[in-house]
Amino acid sequence: MIPSAFDYVKATTVDEAVAALVAAGEDAKILGGGQSLLPVLRLRLNAPSTIVDISNVAEIRTITDEGSSLLIGAGVTTDEVANNALVKAHAPLLSMTAETVADRAIRHRGTFGGSCAHADPAGDLPTAAAALDCEFVIAGPGGRRTVSAADFFVDFFTTAVGPDEVLVAVRVPKTDGWGAHYEKFNRTAQAWAIVGVAALVKVDGGVITDARVALTNMGPKPIRATSVEAALKGQPATADAIKAAAASAADGTKPTSDVHADAEFRSHLARVLTGRAVATAAGV
């Protein structure tokens, strides 16, 4: 399978990339690692007139310690996110989620920023970003702006990034002292998540003092299970209390039915996996 012909622009700075997008119009696509874009191009699900390659933009390839947060360039690979010492130490939810993405070869080229900007509802990294309350730094013709995770993910494959904008970096607040776990259910090793759950839990003296839970593939975008988060606060960190709180994990979600699972099964998975993710994060 061969992609449709396109014009290719290799940008070396963020400004160059934005200028190329402005010049190309709405029909342009950004190429980062290309691990989501290439299948789309080969299957001709999309045939952009121009591809703007940002993989050589040095600014987006770094991870910076900002004190209370890490600034992860949009072009940092999934493999780097999984193995980077800073990420492992201060945002272990992100590194452990990255480890579950696809396979080694895909992780070597696919990027954290690209996964978020692609916004596949079955993507794992967007869910971790939602649980971590990440901020997204977006550059456009008018300069740069920062968007919260709650506002960044808009719909199926749709984010706050406009057609003439580039995702530059993701700011990941440090979660030192929180327990973390990502629990994913899929049918084969490298398949997309049928459902996934990212959990962050703070436990003090055997009591859950704070919790964040986000769901993969339970709707068109990552969903925070706010009722579970509220139910967990103040509960003892025990298997029974966590299971009871997880019972509301599917409330307010809109899972799809497809060949892999119907909506009812997805809802069941959300409850079960939430229980497991929270329990593991809480060390229960």
């Binding site: 190429l31 290309g34 691990q35 290439l38 299948p39 080969r42 080694r104 070869a105 895909i106 070597h108 080229r109």
Partner: peptide, 8 residues
């Protein structure tokens, strides 16, 4: 490692 069908 990379999958060479998935890289330009």
């Amino acid at each position: 490692s990379v999958k060479s069908c998935n890289v330009l």
